[in-house]
């Protein structure tokens, strides 16, 4: 594909970066990225990927916009309260960059629909807010051989990692073998979350996505970044591939998506 005059101008600050250039910008234009959850993490990630000229941005979320979302979910506005988040998000993203094809999936993902859903995309961002979805997305991405950029937030703390288990790096199950049982971890409604924190982690997910697509810099695969907003500190830990991993280890127990995920995962 060739860029138009106005596209060259729109992406000029990328194109003059030697690491990106016209070649990298074309990779972005050809990329298809699916964002799981059009909420706190998905909002800033979707905005920056759309601004960056990613060719196709998919949003999956079955929820509608609520007033209490607006403290952090910047894809939505007071005027879109009550609308489907994916529709509210699509309007915002298309207004930001009409070059981008914004695909919407107003649904909750489940083990019987996720593989079909992700087949059309080449990179995923997980911005979901519950463990059932997180493990389901991890497993589906492993089977479908799609890289996954995982972000999560709680109160003042965020975690970020890139999962590429098919390239010799760990998966989410290597990092955390099992999800916490329901009831053990307070939810955001009880515990609260700093709105800006969602922005910080969501934007870092977008940054890692751009790097994966353009294939520059050092991937976060094999490491986890931990951000503490109160201290303004970033720490990085190493995540080895777990040789006993039930999904991506040499003797896997999980061979399909029939494991015990919640039937339908709330985003």
């Amino acid at each position: 594909m060739e860029f138009t005059e106005s596209q060259i101008e729109r992406y000029s600050r990328h194109i003059i970066l030697s690491e990106v250039g016209g070649k990298g910008q074309k990779k972005l234009a050809a990329a298809k990225v699916l964002i799981i959850g059009a909420g706190g993490l998905g909002s800033p990630a979707a905005l920056y990927l759309t601004a960056a000229g990613v060719g196709t941005v998919g949003l999956v979320d079955g929820d509608v916009v609520d007033l209490s979302n607006l403290q952090r979910q910047i894809l939505h506005t007071t005027a879109t309260i009550g609308k489907l988040k994916v529709e509210s998000g699509q309007a915002m993203l298309s207004a930001l960059n009409p070059d981008v094809s914004v695909k919407i999936h107003p649904m909750n993902i489940a083990s019987d629909n996720i593989l079909r859903l992700i087949a059309d995309y080449d990179l995923l961002l997980d911005g979901s807010d519950n463990f059932a979805t997180r493990y389901l997305v991890n497993d589906a991405c492993f089977f479908a051989k799609k890289p996954l950029i995982s972000g999560s937030i709680f109160r003042f703390e965020g975690q970020l990692t890139t999962l590429r288990p098919n390239d010799g790096f760990p998966c989410y199950r290597c990092l955390y073998a099992e999800p916490p049982p329901a009831g053990l971890v307070p939810n955001c409604q009880e515990a609260g979350v700093l709105g800006v924190l969602a922005g910080t982690i969501g934007v870092l997910q977008a940054a890692e996505a751009v790097k994966e697509i353009v294939d520059i810099g050092e991937s976060l695969a094999g490491s986890m970044l931990i951000y503490d907003a109160l201290e303004m500190s970033f720490r990085r830990t190493r995540i080895p591939k777990d040789p006993t991993c039930p999904l991506c280890g040499p003797n896997p127990r999980i061979k399909d998506l029939s494991a015990d995920y919640a039937v339908s995962c709330s985003l």
Partner: peptide, 16 residues
């Protein structure tokens, strides 16, 4: 030493 629990970012898991 760092203690780092898994975090998901939100609502409790809905069980059917």
């Amino acid at each position: 030493v760092s203690i780092v629990p898994a975090i998901a970012g939100g609502s409790p898991v809905k069980s059917h």
